[in-house]
């Protein structure tokens, strides 16, 4: 079983290089994760504030009359599906794709607007007729232009009666190690979703609305919807980089394990070769 020493050395060297790459990718993802997590954590209070406000407002006025609270008679349901552009992030996209497949099978009328190359490629291959639109190469930008445009588009189409309901499917960030696909209602708005408790609903506050109740809704609702898309995108990025960091961390560990087991094999093979050589020399000398 003389192992090929040269081949072993080559493999050890190449694994060492792979390890350097995966470690670098891990560190890049860790830095990006921190960045997006910061954005996410600081946007959440803003959304919560608007949500609280809307919740209390919905109780004290005839908010439920607003068209954004109504379920239209016409149209088809829409899913806005968030995935990543790039791979190498473990089972991140696989979980999301599994979930979107389930939703698509459940409701034959459901159509999808997809964000991210991985999701788009999947839908293009398996459900091309169900994919309404796709957005790729956002490149991790999070400046609000895309999210505001998206939110406005969704709102317009919803009010025009194109969509009967809109849901968001995105990777919910639980912790660095865990994120899971989450389906969330986007439109029509439900007062229950604003997190107003039974207790609070009994003591509705009589707000003064400046300048007019209509104007307040007109201003507040789109802002709420825009912020929601923004936060969802931030959460998608955060989860993506968390997943990639974990995947690259595992890859680095694997490289280490593989490297040490290969080094062990190399040393054994080298010793075996030396032993054989000595035996050959000794027996050669004895023969003389």
């Amino acid at each position: 079983m003389p192992e090929n020493l040269k081949a072993l050395r080559n493999r050890i060297r190449s694994i060492g290089k792979t390890k350097k790459i995966t470690r670098a990718m891990e560190m890049v993802s860790a830095a990006k994760l921190r960045k997006y997590e910061g954005v996410m954590k600081s946007t959440r209070p803003f959304l919560n504030k608007i949500q609280e406000l809307l919740g209390r407002l919905a109780l004290s006025t005839g908010a439920q009359e607003h068209p954004l609270f109504q379920r239209p008679e016409t149209g088809y349901p829409l899913l806005v599906f968030f995935t990543s552009d790039k791979g190498l992030c473990g089972a991140f996209n696989a979980h999301l794709i599994k979930r979107v497949t389930r939703e698509l099978e459940k409701d034959p009328h459901l159509r999808v607007i997809v964000m991210g190359r991985k999701g788009r490629d999947f839908l293009r291959r398996h459900y091309p007729e169900r994919m309404e639109d796709s957005h790729v190469d956002l490149g991790g930008r999070l400046d609000g232009t895309w999210t505001d445009a998206m939110a406005n588009h969704l709102q317009e189409q919803f009010l025009a009666g194109v969509y009967s309901r809109i849901e968001l499917l995105y990777p919910h960030f639980v912790s660095t190690a865990v994120n899971r696909p989450m389906l969330q209602r986007y439109l029509p708005l439900e007062p229950a979703a604003f997190g107003v408790s039974e207790e609070e609903s009994s003591q509705a506050i009589d707000y003064i609305l400046e300048p007019t109740p209509e104007r307040v809704f007109e201003a507040l609702l789109p802002r709420f919807l825009q912020t929601k898309v923004f936060l969802t995108l931030a959460e998608t990025y955060t989860s993506e980089h968390a997943s990639r960091m974990m995947a690259m961390n595992n890859a680095t560990k694997n490289c280490e394990d593989l490297g040490s087991s290969l080094t062990l094999r190399l040393n054994k093979a080298r010793q075996a070769a030396i032993t054989t050589e000595i035996i050959e020399i000794v027996s050669g000398a004895e023969a003389l």
């Binding site: 406000l53 407002l57 506050i205 009589d206 707000y207 003064i208 609305l209 400046e210 300048p211 104007r215 307040v216 201003a219 507040l220």
Partner: peptide
């Protein structure tokens, strides 16, 4: 302080 509940744009 002690203003009535208000929401303003």
């Amino acid at each position: 302080a002690n203003h009535a509940p208000i929401i303003a744009v």
